[in-house]
Amino acid sequence: MNRGQQEYYKRDYAQAKLEGKPFFPYAVYKDLLIATLAIGLVIGMAIWHRVEIGEPVNPASTDFVPRPEWYFFFLFELLKIFKGQNVFMPVIMATFIVPNILMVLLIATPFIDRGPERRIQKRPIALFTGIAVIAFLAYMTHLGASSNEGVGSEGLPLTGLDEKGQAGADLFLANGCTACHNVAGVGAPGPGPNLTNLGSQGQTPQYWGEFIQDPPGGVMPSFTTFTPQQYDEIGTFLAGLGTTYK
């Protein structure tokens, strides 16, 4: 909008106000009516759908599938699209880049679309963008609502798991390691240390295979019944945490 168009709008709006009606009661009654309806609807839903109480928190249980509230389903679904399959689909797209782009675009809308036209049928780009955003949000929310998977349902929310790593992750879950250790948000926060970035210590798979047979410090139980292949698998898995598998 250039200066002339701004002046035109100001004059036109002043005229609209001049020919207008007072805020009270002409706008107030509409506002109050709709707000009362909305609050009535909320009370109705609260009576009709009584609030439930879930199970109390149990950080040791990992079979629980975390699911956000419905209005975060669209972000939640992004995590399933960007799983880090390749360089073009990194997880950070879903967790950081896309949400922030959406937020910046939302805030910056009036500085991107500065045309003087206000009727939607004469703003094809805005019309298309608006419908596309609504369709995207509706579709993603629908996907999130109709799927029962949580982030942790396929095991640990890790990417880059090869055959050996997957076998190690299965062993990790099957032997209750998550009762004391946390990996990428799955498992108890304690008493064991968080293992999400264990691989950054730079130890070999052999080191970790031997470590779990006789853990130093005497707090952690020993795991002495694995086959050599299984020691190799879980060692590979632990050595790659945070580096290969993240």
């Binding site: 975390p66 699911r67 956000p68």
Partner: peptide, 12 residues
Amino acid sequence: VWDQKAYWATVV
């Protein structure tokens, strides 16, 4: 609410 669903969703 501090139930399972709340806890794990917030962890994520």
